[in-house]
Simulated scan of single mutants.
Amino acid sequence: MRHIAFTALIAASVFTPLAAAAENLTFTLENHTPNMIVQFYATPQGGGKRLELLNKKGLWGGKSRKLTIARGADACVYSTRAVFEDNSFESVSRKIDFCETDVYSIED
């Protein structure tokens, strides 16, 4: 079973959810599994359009990549889902606050 871990790194400046939602939300996705993640989805917690953040570029096991939820997203809290190369998937988390989280890890 895969597990997730996330690290919130607090920036020097203080953000409110409204201020952060007006800008891009950027975080590093770390894949600590042996399998490639082929799709990584984020869906706003209150409902809304599901976003695919890897843009058809896989993330190999043991690698990391900076991902961006583009400007115009009106939420900080997202549910996430990772799809692996063997078509298995993991509903990774239901409440990740990307306004407060800089690193998001998926572990085996």
Rank of each mutant, 00 (worst) to 15 (best):
E107Y: 10
P17I: 01
V77R: 11
E30Q: 08
A82S: 09
A75W: 02
T80L: 08
R50K: 15
L53C: 04
D102R: 08
T33W: 05
H3Q: 15
A21R: 08
Y104L: 07
R2A: 14
T26W: 02
L67V: 06
I69M: 02
I4C: 09
S88M: 08
T101K: 02
V103W: 00
C76N: 14
T28N: 06
W60Q: 15
F27T: 04
T26V: 14
A12K: 02
S88E: 11
S79P: 01
F89G: 07
I37Y: 06
C76I: 09
F40P: 03
L18N: 02
Q45M: 09
F15Q: 07
K49T: 15
K63C: 15
L54A: 05
T101C: 07
A21H: 00
F84C: 05
S88K: 10
D102T: 09
S13R: 05
I106W: 05
T33K: 06
P17A: 00
V38W: 04
Y78W: 09
F98G: 04
P44G: 06
R65N: 12
G62K: 12
G58F: 10
S105C: 06
T43R: 09
H3S: 15
F98S: 04
T43S: 08
E90A: 13
I37P: 06
G58M: 11
D102N: 07
I4D: 10
I10G: 00
Y41L: 10
N31Q: 02
K56H: 14
G48K: 07
Y104F: 15
K57R: 15
P34Y: 07
S88F: 10
P44S: 04
T43W: 00
Q39S: 12
T16H: 00
N35H: 14
V38N: 08
H32C: 01
A70N: 04
V14F: 03
Q45L: 11
P44A: 05
L59T: 10
V14A: 08
S88W: 08
P44F: 03
V77A: 09
M1N: 13
I4G: 06
P17T: 00
T26H: 04
K56L: 12
T7K: 01
E90V: 11
F40R: 02
A8W: 00
L59F: 11
F15L: 07
A8H: 00
A11V: 00
K66E: 14
F40Q: 02
F89H: 14
T7G: 00
N87S: 14
F6N: 06
S105H: 05
S88V: 08
I10Y: 00
N55W: 01
A5S: 11
F27R: 03
E90S: 14
V83L: 08
A73Q: 11
E85G: 10
I10L: 01
A42H: 00
A75L: 01
T28R: 09
S93Q: 07
A8K: 05
N35M: 14
E100D: 08
S105K: 11
L29Q: 04
V103Q: 03
V103Y: 01
A82D: 04
I10Q: 03
G61V: 10
F84R: 05
V103T: 07
L54T: 05
R2N: 13
S91A: 12
D86A: 07
N35T: 13
Q39R: 13
V38H: 07
G62Q: 12
W60R: 15
V83T: 09
G58K: 13
A70K: 08
A12G: 11
I37R: 04
A5N: 10
E107S: 12
G47S: 06
S79M: 10
T80Y: 06
I69A: 01
